[in-house]
Design a binder for these strands. Sequence first.
DNA 1: CGCAGCGTTGACAACCTTCAAATTTGGTGG
DNA 2: CCACCAAATTTGAAGGTTGTCAACGCTGCG
Lengths: 238, 238
Amino acid sequence: MTNPLILKLSHAADLQDEDRALLRRLCARPTAITARTDIIREGDTPSTVRLVLRGLACRYQYLPDGGRAIFALLIPGDLCDLHVSILGRMDHSLATLSACDVVEIPRAAIQFITDTNPRITRALWWATLVDEAVLRHWLVGKNRRLADQQLLHLFCELLVRFQAVGLADGDSYPLPITQIELGDILGLSTVHTNRTLQGLRAEGLIAFEDGRVTILDRERAWEMISFDPGYLHLKRRR
Amino acid sequence: MTNPLILKLSHAADLQDEDRALLRRLCARPTAITARTDIIREGDTPSTVRLVLRGLACRYQYLPDGGRAIFALLIPGDLCDLHVSILGRMDHSLATLSACDVVEIPRAAIQFITDTNPRITRALWWATLVDEAVLRHWLVGKNRRLADQQLLHLFCELLVRFQAVGLADGDSYPLPITQIELGDILGLSTVHTNRTLQGLRAEGLIAFEDGRVTILDRERAWEMISFDPGYLHLKRRR
DNA sequence: CGCAGCGTTGACAACCTTCAAATTTGGTGG
DNA sequence: CCACCAAATTTGAAGGTTGTCAACGCTGCG
């Protein structure tokens, strides 16, 4: 299997063989983490950068009312906290949703890369900018889209992101989470999340079962939400 | 008047006199831009970094339905697009809301700073991280707060940000925008924005008139929304 | 077998949007 | 200074979307 980090960063820079070798060395010796386990907690001051190689993780925060808000999903190839040591203190937490393989990259290794390898450095900054663009789109969607369009948008975005790291199977990809967690992501109640899913299933647009999402009618789904993956800043697939 | 960029970055690093002098030189020769004018348009590939020295600007996007979504406010001291040239193409626009003074900083000047001045470099990255944290909080608020709490949260956040650049007058600061624009920021209809404002006014919590916001009862306002400015990562005021 | 968590359903209430219209405000030209 | 116009604010009413509460069935696991 090709390394998801390399696949992802290839969208941002023309990586050379030496770059790929360097990135592969970074990914040696991942740590396996079980599902639903905190990786970094609010208040921590992490000194290493983390990289998800396998599985699904999220950024989240508990709220005064006891609820949980999830405001980012990390799929293989995604980095956490490339630069968060500058802030000193995490203002939110990270946790696994499924079982994950995570690599801890020492600060010195990142320093070495940014000092010596402009191609990879550029690609890393590209990745953080894309993360921010995703966040903006979630906010716009929350403000302006109904629940069914929001859900469809999330599923379409994830399809493109999984395809970008070679982990989609046609129009299908793994998403082993509960409807409760899906509600925490979308900011919807469990009940409404369930009803929205049923609506989209009845339309024949999507399937969400056995921990997988399948977009059954991508043409129509994209049109319904005017989906434009441009904000992910990926290269067209060859 | 002290330079807002210097005041802002002082929260992130112990600037030396030479740093301040360098930053002041950066801010020489601002351009005056009238209210409601685009600074950068979606699709552009800006080659300079911009800095707001005076006035209010925003990041926004027009939506398929013709509406406008505003997902960031820029106040004096805020930078736009420190690194966006990496993405090649803007996926949203920036515009002034009030009359602004904006500085264009050549890419070479940023390059020079990041190559030679680690204190300012660190402070600049800090600023982009804070921007991201603000974005996350807007998303969480949208998901989990009612309109009145959202509005209150926005007004409290802006108070803290204005205080951080020395532009607040007690618990009051300038916000010369219409209720329509406020609705675009909060993702609420104009009608509901208006009614929400009336509710908060009737509670004696805030005033919003003549282009200024005043938090009339900060104690109670903060408590109502469990406001914790920690996510802005500012130093305590002395 | 019993339990706990998840998915599903129904009924109802709350929040917010939309539509339509009246009122106020601010700017411009006579 | 006043008349006029456009834009913004405000009000009312109705309808749609989503949340909350409560209950039930299902599934996997000890």
